[in-house]
Design a binder for these strands. Sequence first.
DNA 1: AACCTGCTCAACCGCCACAAC
DNA 2: CGTTGTGGCGGTTGAGCAGGT
Length: 242
Amino acid sequence: MRCSKSCRLRWTNYLRPGIKRGNFTHQEEKLIVHLQALLGNRWAAIASYMPERTDNDIKNYWNTHLKRKLKKMSAAADNGPDAAPELKSRAITPKGQWERRLQTDIHTARQALRDALSLDSSTPTRPQPPALVAPFKPTYASSAENIARLLEGWMRPGEGGGKASSGSRSSASVSAEGASASHSGTAPTPDGSTVTSKTEDGRAATAAPALSMLENWLFDDGMGHGGVGLMDVPLGDPSQFF
DNA sequence: AACCTGCTCAACCGCCACAAC
DNA sequence: CGTTGTGGCGGTTGAGCAGGT
């Protein structure tokens, strides 16, 4: 009564030895949020950084817990009595706007990463008009490696750290959606320094740091493992990755 | 005890890419 | 080069459960 597909699913998501089920740690939560921001809903790619977790598990956890948690946090940021001025300003903004802003922040982070990864390319560096730039499609191997570097020090020892998912086609490309959109890469850092990155016309763009509740949540003890946190890496300076 | 509601998570579905023919 | 089979993925569903009324 079972097809091969169904059996495979059962094996990979349930029977396979070495998988951990339930009880996501705070650390794992944050890693998922980070990776989701970087990779989008590419659960298989995200799961490749968490060998003990299945993509289905991570997807479920995102859909049932984290989505709601982030939503709650955004609501708290809107209404919190002792919210920071930045948050207070958000409180008077319609929720939809805040969500759009969050999306913009995520897009910005992705763009910065994309910029960083693009240095992998051996293609000529001659600048091209944005409209003529081919969609960015790095191989997963290269992107996984680079993302693993971003995650160095963030993950606990022994948690993998760049296990490339071999032969995973869907994982093979970090999405280039929105790659042609106008973009300026800025990202806040935990220490409050301003991150600068290039806009599409090559000019440097800067932005004052503004930590949201969500960002604070991501930054707090997640970086407390003595290593360099993901967000400690100035995304706007991709040259240091390589 | 019966009913309702919300949550969790394994399983299903449709789509896509690739290999074999 | 087109067709078919298969594997892998992300999105979605629904059965089962717990807690509340």
